[in-house]
Design a protein around this nucleic acid. Structure first.
Lengths: 295, 295
DNA sequence: GATCTCCATAGGCTCTGCCTATCACAGCCG
DNA sequence: CGGCTGTGATAGGCAGAGCCTATGGAGATC
């Protein structure tokens, strides 16, 4: 049984005429006759009663017709579905990102992507780099925005650097302005507000303090980005955050750059090395690269 | 898109393995790979992400899979349906017959047919030959048992003679036994019970009386076969009926043959000339011919 | 690092499906 | 009644599709 044969069969059933059916399906009449014969032979039953000028379906033909129509309709649907996915009119991207990136970088990028491809659903998973890497490997994510270096580097993941972000110190606008720029060493003994475990920023900041020979002291710890900013605003301490986050934090926060060499972190896009990400994910990757490299 | 390609696609989707899928569908692995490629090319999207040892469906593949399964299932169903019809495991025969034949000939023939092909539905339409011929031409009947000569002969119908039936006179067992055998002329003035219009027997009997120079007189007229026999049984008059019907009429009816040349009628099977009857109808025709010629 | 596994590619063969040309048959009309 | 027309079936030839075997090449394995 061939799709072509079913197309021919339906055409004959609907026109009740071999020659006109052949025209309709753009094939010569002998070819159509031959294929109908072949179908009849394969099925073991005549499908049409061929009376001069009165082609009619046999009972076998009657039984086949609705199924043939449905098969052809399903095939059409299949073509459409797949092409809509391929043309990014539908689909989804499962994107992981660290909390600070969800707050800082993602909103405008996702907005741009959504404007380009309104049919694509965006599923965001917020988590620490470690979790994101695991989810990528499991296939639960298509892409992830992570901070380099990865906590668990693996050849199974490919990373593309997106941008380098300066970290800055934020403090309450009500507190006395610090001498600018602040050095890491200046943070010794300063009350700090710290993110929960899992934030790359936490590890990075703690490591930087230890490199200066002291252990940071936390007034409050465990919050998410917004909470931390709120605690800083309330005067509970200072915090080290990406400049991009600090930039949108509002007037009641004082933003102070770090003295050279300062602290930077590298944001990268990661995906599995073994399989190409889905089409929609590749497109999001493109938008991300363009929006970060361009500005 | 080819059925074969969908079969291969489903096999790969289910085994997640090209080589094993190829074995399962009894084709070489390169052929299967090639067909999957061809399908992907036609649809314009990759269906599988081919990671070493980890073949997975892409989102396009996920979209296609259920449709592919349904298409293949429908194709199987189509094959089954058509073959069941062809093998007479299912189907129907629309058979027309005159009332006297429904009473006399049909029961045992239909019983034999049903024993042979229990899956075939038998749709009987009882009517006069005239109506039956019209229904045949309309395509509303596959076959009809009619009495020859046809009221409206036409080259569009083919008739096959089945048997010749003697007509006999039935009277109440309570009445005095008539001199045997009875001549048509003896019926002059005898009260008769007559079928409704539309019965071939009515036309035939009236014509025979007129040929003898008299008009028959009816005590009761208008009934179906059973009613007529009942009226005769009740002593309302005599009736002319097929011997086959009289034979099963019971003891309280006296059956008297007609004197030579008697009255006979020819029963024939009619179907359209332009189209072959469906397979099941041809089979019923065969059973009818065998059962009437054989005995 | 040799081997193994597994998918992709290349080349050749066969068979299928399509085409044109023609036949066979019925109905129509002058 | 004989040619004409319309319709489906048949015949022969050709191009392409699909399958095969053989081979390549990239990870995984021991």
């Amino acid at each position: 049984m061939q799709f072509q044969q079913l197309v021919y069969f339906v055409a004959v059933a609907e026109t009740r005429h071999f020659t006109r059916a052949a025209e309709r399906v753009h094939v010569s009449q002998p070819s159509l006759s031959q294929q109908i014969r072949a179908l009849e032979k394969e099925l073991g039953a005549e499908l049409f009663s061929r009376a001069r000028g009165n082609i009619a379906l046999t009972d076998a033909g009657e039984a086949l017709l609705p199924l043939a129509r449905r098969i052809l309709a399903d095939a059409d649907t299949a073509r459409h579905e797949v092409q809509e996915l391929a043309q990014l009119r539908r689909g989804r991207v499962r994107l992981g990102a660290t909390p600070s990136l969800c707050t800082g970088l993602l909103p405008e990028v996702l907005r741009a992507f959504h404007d380009l491809y309104p049919g694509i659903r965006l599923l965001i998973e917020e988590g620490g780099s470690h979790d994101l890497v695991r989810e990528l490997a499991r296939g639960a994510l298509d892409l992830a925005l992570v901070v380099l270096p990865l906590p668990t580097p693996s050849p199974a993941l490919t990373t593309v650097e997106l941008l380098q972000e300066d970290l800055v110190v934020v403090s309450s606008a009500a507190d006395p302005a610090p001498r600018r720029p602040v050095r890491i060493a200046d943070l010794e003994g300063r009350p700090m507000v710290m993110f929960r475990h899992g934030y790359d920023l936490r590890e990075l900041t703690v490591a930087a303090c230890r490199a200066e020979g002291f252990e940071p002291s936390f007034t409050v710890e465990g919050g998410e980005m917004d909470a931390v900013l709120g605690f800083v605003r309330a005067g509970l301490g200072v915090a080290v955050v990406p400049s991009m986050v600090a930039a949108r934090a509002g007037r009641d926060l004082r933003v102070t750059a770090l003295a050279p060499p300062g602290l930077r972190r590298t944001i990268a896009l990661a995906h599995r090395s073994d399989v190409a990400p889905p089409r929609a994910a590749r497109e999001l990757q493109r938008v991300l690269l363009r929006s970060t490299s361009g500005g």
